[in-house]
């Protein structure tokens, strides 16, 4: 599942970063507390968060995340988009709630496994 797939699954829009990035989701971390995210041990994280700030992007860069999804259609600041572009972190905005986004991603993973 690449970032383009994530955009499709979550009815989202890619706001920053490279749509053609070949990186695939290794694990989904849905969390608004950045210290928790820093503690996670997975590689190629897709970070789902309602924290629409630069810090979400900076945290994603630290843990080597493959992308960040801001759910609930939270407004994004221009500075956040710039940080995402500078650090080359794909940033997706989705109108779904965190719960719905998780359910859809889960279903998509199951479908991927069955295929």
């Amino acid at each position: 599942m690449t970032i383009t797939d994530v955009v499709k699954i979550l009815d989202g829009k890619l706001i920053a970063g490279d749509a053609t990035s070949p990186r695939v989701v290794g694990a989904v971390v849905a969390n608004d507390l950045m210290s928790d995210v820093l503690l996670s041990d997975y590689d190629d994280i897709l970070l789902l968060t309602s924290l629409a700030s630069d810090q979400a992007i900076r945290t994603a860069h630290i843990v080597g995340a493959m992308g960040v999804v801001i759910h609930n259609a939270k407004p994004l600041s221009e500075t956040m988009i710039k940080v995402a572009d500078d650090l080359a972190i794909p940033l997706v905005s989705s109108p779904l709630s965190k719960y719905d986004a998780c359910v859809r991603l889960h279903d998509a993973f199951l479908a991927e496994e069955r295929a």
Partner: peptide, 15 residues
């Protein structure tokens, strides 16, 4: 079609 909201300029807390 879903259109995300982009806030212009700095984040509010930055002011």
């Amino acid at each position: 079609e879903y259109s995300p909201v982009i806030l212009k300029g700095q984040q509010t807390s930055d002011d």
